[in-house]
Design a protein around this nucleic acid. Sequence first.
DNA 1: ATTCTATATTGCAATATTACGATGAATGAA
DNA 2: TTCATTCATCGTAATATTGCAATATAGAAT
Lengths: 110, 110
Amino acid sequence: MGLTKTEKFTEDQNTIALIAKAFAHPARVAILQHLFKINSCICGDLVEEIGLAQPTISQHLKELKNIGLIKGTIEGTSVCYCIDKDKWAEMKSIISQFLDQDLNDGNTCC
Amino acid sequence: MGLTKTEKFTEDQNTIALIAKAFAHPARVAILQHLFKINSCICGDLVEEIGLAQPTISQHLKELKNIGLIKGTIEGTSVCYCIDKDKWAEMKSIISQFLDQDLNDGNTCC
DNA sequence: ATTCTATATTGCAATATTACGATGAATGAA
DNA sequence: TTCATTCATCGTAATATTGCAATATAGAAT
């Protein structure tokens, strides 16, 4: 069906899945890494940096913008994208909490 | 196209995307959380725990097994699934490294 | 006004994902 | 053996994702 049954899961589980989805494509990972590397805005060099067509990059940027990880401000002709540090921290906290579940080392049977 | 152009990205970026994909569905998040909560094997209670059909759960388990996050051993009639703690730690390290990129707080322009 | 440059949007084709009914395989119990 | 239980696999339908050509939009430069 391709239709996730969101209502069957907790809000937490759906949130984690949504964040993970944003990272679930190497192009989006590359975009975020590049944004961190230059530690500033990018105004258009992404298409050359990553080897995909301009509409494809634009689409990935849109998805990252939708979940709030990046924000774009219009800068003359071009658009200036950068990480939303607050949202990034918030997201990092949620994911870290999920990843750190294994602290208790009780009875494992396998 | 729906076909990710893997060859355009670094191994690191592809790895991160693959791991994220495993977390990109609430059912798989729920499965992993349940596995941690009972801190032991599960032998079948997942279908009731999560409200999806048995083939669907089986498929999600397969994906988690494919990337190595869980392992299953046959235990009589049922199958015993649990987290692969080594792989989990390895994965956690990769993701944490990605999430911790923002440590430097240099010139932001937005 | 026209042209150039940068980005967004639309439309579409190819592939992937999700979900489940039906069925199969394997084990244990009667 | 026969039956019930547990899980995997197959087949299929519905939806989502990815990628790009074509086009639209908007500001800058001439």
